[in-house]
């Protein structure tokens, strides 16, 4: 048995033991996410335009992650709508920044891995870099919007008389509670993911100036920055979406009653 299969089975068993049906769903969402991610790359290899593919796959991944791990339909819907807004805003940010920072393709540190390969493949790597950045932020957006949505939904259920405006303020304070740990999830992800790169930098005595201008470091770093910005803007956006939906539902039930 391969290591991936063995670890996968163990993760599945643990998820089921901890979460039952929800565990199965969490595992499925991971599996589907991988499938769609790889499928997106294969489509790009067939010269389909990267940005539209990324947008479609991105929406599918967000909906899978949110609806497969959501407990409450109402909260999941709010989280999904908010995450779409965040996705669009992030795309508007990512495209010009990627064009400005120019970290597409590969750096000199990659030379060994690229030996013997043809780099002239006729696909613009800047587009691939934009797609990569967008896809990398999806997990963080989904997680943050779910956390805010489920927190606020619980408050709304416990205090049905709450004012929509107060609900928005509560959303920001839920955000304040999650931001510290989310920031750590992202940055430890960066530290872990680029540990060998940093060891390389240390070995070759890169200066601070060398590092912040380095292409490979830049590519990893800006992805974390985009995820971080995604998480930050998710907080007010999700709170606003939920307080609006709550206000609408309230006025509907009042006009009925």
């Amino acid at each position: 048995m391969s290591t991936i299969t063995a670890l996968g089975i163990i993760l599945l068993l643990m998820m089921v033991a901890v979460g039952g049906k929800k565990g199965v769903q969490s595992f499925l969402s991971l599996l589907f996410n991988f499938g769609f991610l790889y499928f997106a790359i294969i489509l790009m290899a067939y010269h389909l335009p990267p940005l539209p593919i990324t947008l479609i796959v991105g929406i599918i991944i967000l909906s899978l992650t949110i609806f497969l791990s959501g407990t409450d339909d109402n909260a999941s819907q709010s989280a999904f709508i908010s995450s779409l807004f965040v996705l669009i805003l992030l795309i508007i940010l990512i495209i010009p920044i990627e064009n400005w920072v120019q970290v597409q393709g590969f750096g000199i540190e990659d030379s060994d891995d690229l030996e013997g390969m043809s780099l002239l493949i006729g696909i613009k790597f800047i587009k691939i870099a934009i797609s990569t950045a967008i896809l990398s932020t999806l997990g963080a957006i989904a997680e943050a919007s779910m956390a805010i949505a489920s927190g606020l939904n619980e408050i709304a259920e416990q205090h049905p008389a709450i004012k929509p405006r107060q609900l928005f303020i509560d959303g920001i304070s839920v955000g304040k509670q999650i931001i510290g740990t989310t920031l750590n999830t992202l940055f430890f992800g960066l530290f872990g993911g680029s540990l060998s790169l940093f060891i390389w930098f240390a070995g070759l005595h890169y200066s601070f100036g060398n590092i912040i201008n380095d292409k490979v470091f830049g590519a990893e770093f800006i992805i974390i920055m985009f995820s971080l910005i995604g998480v930050i803007i998710t907080i007010p956006i999700t709170s606003a979406v939920i307080s609006r939906r709550f206000a609408k539902r309230k006025s509907k039930s009042q006009s009925k009653g």
């Binding site: 998820m15 996410n33 959501g70 489920s150």
Partner: peptide, 10 residues
């Protein structure tokens, strides 16, 4: 159980 799925995905 409800937060582990999204976190693994991050």
């Amino acid at each position: 159980a409800s937060i582990m799925g999204p976190l693994v995905n991050v």
